[in-house]
Design a protein around this nucleic acid. Structure first.
Lengths: 113, 113
DNA sequence: TGCCTATATTCGAGACTTCGAATATACTGT
DNA sequence: ACAGTATATTCGAAGTCTCGAATATAGGCA
């Protein structure tokens, strides 16, 4: 695989590597929203929201449209939603494995006594 | 979606947010490999490889097994390979869109003359 | 024009990341 | 025990990220 592709992937992952930005992408899953709505739901400073949106914009993950006073943001591709969905499955798989491992340890200790 | 899930996703993305670590994950796609092999193919310093592997280990993305002198690494879940495959599709979609947009601009300029 | 609301940018402090150099640890074979 | 190979850790410098505070820009409306 060419190096440019790996750099691209790394850049996108970097852009997604913050809980607030993941929350933004998730909130845009079903359509566009004005920044004000995002700020309200995220409960963060306005400047901070703009900064995170600027990161997502610079990587072309979101796109914006002006409507009068406000700026509406939307996802540029549904593929990233797919990625987030896989990550949710991954999370659950990890949880399950971890709990199974804990169960094993308990069993061993029980058997040793 | 709970915040813990978003923090988990952000942590995994962070761990993948480096071309070298993406290369490592890709190299482990078809089975485990000793660190020496990874270093050889990556063409980086031994210490650097160990550091990147340590990041992937700390997030449980890879798992290691000792065999005599060497340490074999392997992926803990095929789900991350799925993620990387989607990212490849995403990359191509972006490329295509960008080229289409460039074509549009050219057409407009041509029409304006 | 002047004021209000919505969004963006700049700045600086503190935290985090990345690298190679140096060093530490662990296993193998003699 | 010693030498050699494989891997891990520590350190410090340079770079990057994140936040709130302050400020800038732009649209809407009196």
């Amino acid at each position: 695989m060419p190096d440019a592709l790996r750099r691209f992937k790394a850049d996108i992952f970097q852009a997604l590597a913050h809980p607030t930005r993941i929350a933004i992408v998730e909130m845009l899953r079903d359509g566009d929203l004005p920044e004000g709505k995002l700020i309200e739901r995220l409960g963060i400073e306005q400047a901070n929201a703009s900064q995170h949106l600027s990161v997502l914009r610079s990587k072309q993950i979101v796109v914006n449209r002006k409507d009068g006073n406000q700026v509406f943001y939307s996802l540029r591709s549904p593929l990233l939603i797919e990625v987030l969905d896989i990550m949710r499955r991954y999370f659950h798989a990890q949880l399950t494995e971890t709990m199974a491992a804990l169960g094993e340890i308990e069993k061993e200790h029980g058997a040793a006594r």
